[in-house]
């Protein structure tokens, strides 16, 4: 039997940690399972920036990736591995819902597990939060941890 992949969305919050806990319990019940942790730094290639921001963008991006790895991803991956589970971590820039969905497709994941985060701001109200859009567009089952 091939390996089962569970994708877990992390956001550095409590909700993300609960999603990871849930995934760990599930993974423990499946013989050959890997947990893929995903942290998305919100970013759009269609935002407007000043020349100065552009000049520093590459350096900022490196910084953002490093911080995300240090503060969120590495501790989570280590903690998961410490429990004897197979785990890898991915940090990406972009739209969280899009990235979770496209990774799920690419790795033929069994499901996506995310924490429920309350809608924030007007944008989230108008277009739906990350979880809402993920549920609407996902090609694999999505589990939302309250």
């Amino acid at each position: 039997m091939s390996q089962t992949t569970l994708i877990v969305g992390l956001d550095g919050s409590e909700a993300g940690n609960r999603a990871l806990e849930f995934a760990k319990t599930r993974a423990g019940l499946i013989a050959d399972c890997r947990i893929m942790l995903v942290y998305v730094i919100e970013w759009s290639p269609f935002s407007f920036q000043t020349a100065e921001e552009n000049e520093k963008r590459h350096a900022r991006r490196e910084q953002e990736l490093q911080l995300a790895h240090e503060r969120v991803m590495n501790p989570a991956v280590e903690a998961t591995r410490a429990e004897g589970l197979t785990c890898e971590g991915i940090v990406r820039h972009g739209d969280a819902a899009d990235i979770l969905e496209s990774l799920a497709k690419k790795h033929e994941a069994a499901q996506i597990i995310v924490g429920r985060v309350g809608a924030q701001g007007i944008k989230a109200r108008l277009f739906g939060g990350v979880t809402g859009r993920l549920v609407a567009g996902s090609s694999v089952p999505v589990t939302i941890i309250p």
């Binding site: 290639p45 269609f46 552009n54 963008r57 953002e64 990736l65 990406r92 972009g94």
Partner: peptide
């Protein structure tokens, strides 16, 4: 992703 895009430039 996360770098300066053509659109932004």
């Amino acid at each position: 992703a996360g770098e300066v895009s053509h659109f932004q430039a």
